[in-house]
Computed example of a mutant assay.
Amino acid sequence: MKSLCLASASPRRRELLALLGVEFNVLPVDIPEFPHPQERAADYVQRLAFEKAMAGLARSGADVALGSDTIVVCDGDILEKPENKQHYLRMLSRLSGREHQVLTAVSVVSNAQQYTELMVTKVNFRPLLASDLEWYWQTGEPLDKAGGYGIQGKAARFVCSINGSYTAVVGLPLCETEALLERVGIVATSSKVSGETK
């Protein structure tokens, strides 16, 4: 049976991948996360997913590695994780009462095969009050989230609708991920997760 490495420190991606019933090890990777000059958002997020997967493959010794990345895009601008409270407030204020896009790429690589898929999901927020923004910041949730929010957490109350993949917004599009894993010979076997690799 082929071994699989999840090249991510994200607990959300670990939980989602476990839902597919595949065995895997976890190996967080650290790569530079900033767009190249003139790089489009879609190209940027796919590049990061691929670079994470390749780093995981090189370091883990696994047969297959999976990398993923998620960004929030509003008016063509990439909204990354908030650097501080003021940065968070600017981002959430832009998302208030309107639609934005969440782009998630997943990359599955082996020594012989490389596949990357991109999912684009439209998310609509209700108008947010200053009290909403202050309350949500105080929860601590925005700190490690692209765009300053997590749809699977307390920010769910801000979401009017989504058009696309919910699991992609959380961090890993399960339907596409399962299909990619099957292409490299990894099929769901059990829900057991191997011990995390440091």
Results as ranks from 00 to 15, higher is better:
G97D: 08
G97E: 03
R98F: 11
R98S: 13
R98Q: 15
R98C: 12
Q101H: 08
L103E: 06
L103R: 02
T104N: 02
T104Q: 04
A105M: 05
A105G: 00
V106C: 09
V106L: 10
V106G: 10
V108M: 11
V109G: 11
N111V: 14
N111E: 12
A112C: 14
A112Y: 10
Q114D: 08
Q114R: 15
Q114W: 06
Y115V: 13
Y115T: 11
T116V: 15
T116N: 08
E117N: 13
L118Y: 00
L118R: 04
V120N: 07
V120A: 09
T121A: 00
K122Y: 06
K122E: 05
V123C: 12
V123A: 03
V123G: 02
N124Q: 05
F125A: 04
F125E: 02
F125C: 03
R126T: 04
R126W: 00
R126Y: 11
L128A: 07
L128T: 02
L128G: 05
L128E: 06
L129I: 00
A130F: 09
A130M: 12
A130N: 13
D132T: 00
D132P: 05
L133F: 07
L133C: 11
E134I: 01
E134R: 03
E134Y: 02
W135C: 03
W135V: 00
W135T: 10
Y136N: 00
Y136R: 00
W137H: 15
W137I: 11
Q138P: 07
Q138F: 10
Q138A: 14
Q138K: 14
T139F: 03
T139R: 00
T139K: 01
T139V: 04
G140W: 05
E141M: 06
P142F: 08
P142G: 10
P142E: 02
L143T: 14
L143W: 14
L143D: 12
D144P: 13
D144V: 08
D144A: 06
K145N: 04
K145W: 07
A146N: 02
A146V: 06
G147H: 04
G148W: 04
G150L: 11
G150M: 05
I151Y: 01
I151N: 01
Q152V: 01
Q152D: 07
Q152M: 06
Q152F: 02
G153F: 03
G153I: 07
G153T: 03
K154F: 10
A155K: 07
F158P: 05
C160E: 15
C160K: 09
S161A: 15
S161Q: 14
S161R: 14
I162L: 12
I162V: 10
N163M: 14
G164Y: 08
G164I: 07
G164E: 00
G164T: 01
G164A: 02
G164P: 06
Y166R: 05
T167G: 05
T167N: 06
A168S: 15
A168N: 10
A168E: 01
V169H: 06
V169L: 05
V169Y: 00
V169I: 15
V170F: 02
G171Q: 08
G171Y: 10
L172E: 02
L172F: 01
L174C: 03
C175F: 14
T177I: 12
E178I: 04
A179S: 15
L181S: 12
L181A: 00
E182P: 00
R183S: 13
V184G: 01
V184T: 07
I186V: 15
I186W: 08
I186S: 02
V187M: 06
V187N: 14
